[in-house]
Design a binder for these strands. Structure first.
Length: 360
DNA sequence: GGCATTTGACCAGC
DNA sequence: GCTGGTCAAATGCC
């Protein structure tokens, strides 16, 4: 009980601190000839922090529910170990917020589905292709016109459903507002061999996936999902649990994620966003707009397990919301346009850079 | 031929 | 009765 309150308390404090930090940053920006976009971004972040803080204060939800809410964004990863039962955060179909909910299974037609679901938003710069490359092999089994929706909803299930009994499914719904955005709802965990993969499967041909035994399954899946989602210059955001679609502008490099080298570093913003000093570090050292693309990620040692290490540090809703609440800023340039403020860095001198998993 | 996709039908929940 | 989710036959592709 006490720990429950402690968790809420810490989350609340974190949100308020974050809001304060961003407000301070905005204040600095107001003295500089920064773009309106940058200021909008900062304002959005401030509002987001305070909304979340208020939500915590107002919420009648149990601590576990709040924690579940906090973890919602980690569930950007379809394979995140999330299990939320009957959270009041989930509205019905009319409410539109269905990030997680218990899936009933008492129908012959509607087969048994695992007890968690997850929803992510994926936008594709091309606007033409669906976000079907998420690292798993899916087989489309249906398509339905949804009432009130401009575009039909597609239903996919794991290719290995029959061979390996994998009951993971996903639904893909193109957004009415922005056809380049797809709402993807994942249901069920992959119990097939894909679920154990740490290595992104090749985009080509046989689609066979080789297992990787050394990486924790969830993080492996997480990494894989991230990689796959961004492989085609996708930007991803989760639906805000509390207030719709506010997103922070962010664009990813139009480079292939097929090899887990420097390109993978573009995942880092997700992990760093909420760690202000890390965020600043990233923004300054890795994302300088004047820096050629090849120099975006100057540290060749900044690799995937480093990301995992950072990913491990993410626990609160703000962590993840900051990380994945992104928006597409599509450009035709091969060099991504990062709508971040590039402020001077204030690196915590006590930060343990030698922490295992950080600069590995 | 094998596999994936399409699409109309079926079923259960509301 | 309407709607969403799933099934399964038909079809297409490699």
């Amino acid at each position: 009980m006490e720990s429950d309150w402690s968790w809420e308390h810490n989350t609340l404090i974190n949100e308020l601190i974050q809001g304060m930090e961003v407000a301070r940053k905005l204040k600095e920006d107001l003295r500089m000839p920064y773009s309106v976009d940058t200021r909008d971004l900062l304002v959005q972040r401030i509002l987001s922090s305070y909304e979340k803080a208020l939500l915590i204060l107002r919420s009648n939800a149990s601590t576990s529910e709040l924690q579940a809410m906090s973890q919602t964004t980690t569930a950007l990863l379809p394979e995140s170990p999330l299990s939320v039962h009957g959270s009041p955060l989930h509205e019905d179909a009319d409410g539109g917020i269905k990030d997680h909910k218990e899936v009933k299974h008492h129908s012959k037609k509607r087969k048994i589905t695992p007890k968690w679901m997850d929803q992510v938003r994926v936008s594709c710069e091309s606007g033409l292709e669906g976000p079907h490359e998420d690292g798993y092999n899916w087989r489309k089994y249906g398509q339905k016109d949804i009432l009130g929706a401009k575009y039909p909803r597609s239903y996919y299930r794991c290719t290995f459903r029959n061979t390996q009994g994998c009951w993971a499914t996903k639904q893909v719904q193109r957004s009415d507002e922005d056809p380049t955005i797809f709402d993807i709802t994942y249901k069920g965990k992959h119990t097939c061999s894909q679920g154990n993969n740490a290595i992104l499967p090749p985009k080509s041909a046989n689609k066979q996936v080789k297992p990787h035994s050394n990486i924790d399954i969830h993080h492996a899946q997480a990494s894989q999902e991230y990689l796959a989602m961004f492989r085609n210059t996708l930007s991803v955001s989760t639906d805000k649990v509390d207030n719709g679609d506010m997103a922070y502008p962010f664009t990813f490099p139009s480079t292939s994620f097929g090899s887990m080298k420097q390109e993978n570093l573009s995942l880092i913003p997700f992990a760093l966003e909420n760690q202000s000093f890390l965020s600043d570090l990233y923004q300054t050292h890795l994302l300088s707009p004047t820096t050629p693309e090849s120099n975006y990620f100057p540290s060749p040692t900044f690799q995937m397990d480093g990301f995992d290490g950072i990913y491990n540090k993410l626990h609160s809703e703000s962590d993840i919301n900051e990380i994945i609440s992104t928006n597409t800023s599509a450009t035709n340039s091969p060099i991504p346009e990062f709508n971040f403020s590039l402020d001077p860095v204030e690196i915590d001198p006590n930060f343990p850079f030698n922490t295992p998993g950080f600069f590995s």
